[in-house]
Write a protein that binds this DNA or RNA. Structure first.
Lengths: 168, 168
DNA sequence: GATCTTAGATTCCTTTAGAAAACTTAGCAT
DNA sequence: ATGCTAAGTTTTCTAAAGGAATCTAAGATC
């Protein structure tokens, strides 16, 4: 398919989606983070072909998102656990889940509930400002090029991140 | 490639990634939400082939994530704007951006800054509990099947969403 | 020693995504 | 009338993604 390599582009979204944006990776991470960590369990649960699953897991291990870990000694068996980098993908999954819940509601309500152990309630995730805690939306934020943006020779630039363009 | 259709599965993440999980959609949405709304601008900015761009835009319009809108009368020209459903993808982009910033930092720092107009500060997004406002992480949450989970005949079930499985 | 389990690797095959580049269409502009 | 611009279509070509099924290997179990 000769996918344009996006990992080296000056955009964190591109870097992130380069790993994350395929049909299976998000679902594998959801499973691993909720306790489905073994090869055969993942294969059955997702209905993914074993070949593709092996390829995805290998890439996630290479990228340090997952680690193989022995879960029993005899016979030696290994499963996949999320690293800190992997656990840190949880907000992305929560955001996707929220969006799916909101815009593709099933007939019977959301397919899963998230319980916040700290406060004890069923909840959902909101994207909050790290400074003031209020929700972050398209309309109350602006994006500017940061220090790592559009600099350096050979760094391809994606996205002007400009304010709305006026019609001529 | 015969991608397994995931849109009809009992999992909001699957429903969301079914639309969102390809190499370009996230980047197109980032561009549109930050003001790059015209076909040629998108094509040049992303370095995407025009054919693929047209296909993606058509799908996003079909899914009611974008709308074509006339931005000038003579000659009639149209661009793409985010619907509310499209704007609601912003938290997903912020989460991806955060993760990319954290785990694939460039040499010079993050490529983009997000300014929260409400409080005036440069900021980043945290995934906060809608109830208590504290951060939501893998370790302080549990997932349970919700009302729409694993029900109904013909509804394929993805993911047991079970608590951690013990070794035998 | 035969079979079962788990975690893959391998082989074969088809589909299609995607790049690149040229073509199209409508309305202005000169 | 000729050219320009914007927004796509169309065509050709290749690489690779994915499914399905079989094969392997190491230990366990009977």
């Amino acid at each position: 398919m000769t996918r344009t390599p996006l990992g080296d582009v000056a955009c964190s979204i591109a870097r992130a989606t380069d790993l994350f944006a395929d049909a299976w990776t998000a679902l594998i991470m959801r499973d691993v983070l909720t306790g489905v960590t073994r090869f055969d369990d993942l294969a059955h649960d997702l209905g993914i072909s074993r070949k593709v699953l092996a390829a995805r897991l290998a890439r996630l291990v290479r990228e340090d998102v997952l680690v193989r870990e022995q879960y029993q000694e005899r016979p030696p068996r290994e499963d996949y656990r999320a690293t800190e980098k992997g656990k840190d993908l949880y907000p992305v999954l929560l955001a996707l889940m929220n969006w799916g819940d909101r815009w593709y509601p099933g007939t019977a309500g959301p397919p899963a509930r998230v319980q916040h152990l700290t406060c004890g309630h069923d909840t959902s995730a909101v994207s909050a400002c790290a400074r003031c805690g209020d929700p972050l939306t398209v309309d109350n934020t602006t994006q500017f090029p940061g220090p790592g943006g559009r600099t350096g020779p050979g760094t391809r630039v994606l996205g002007p991140l400009l304010a709305s363009r006026q019609p001529k």
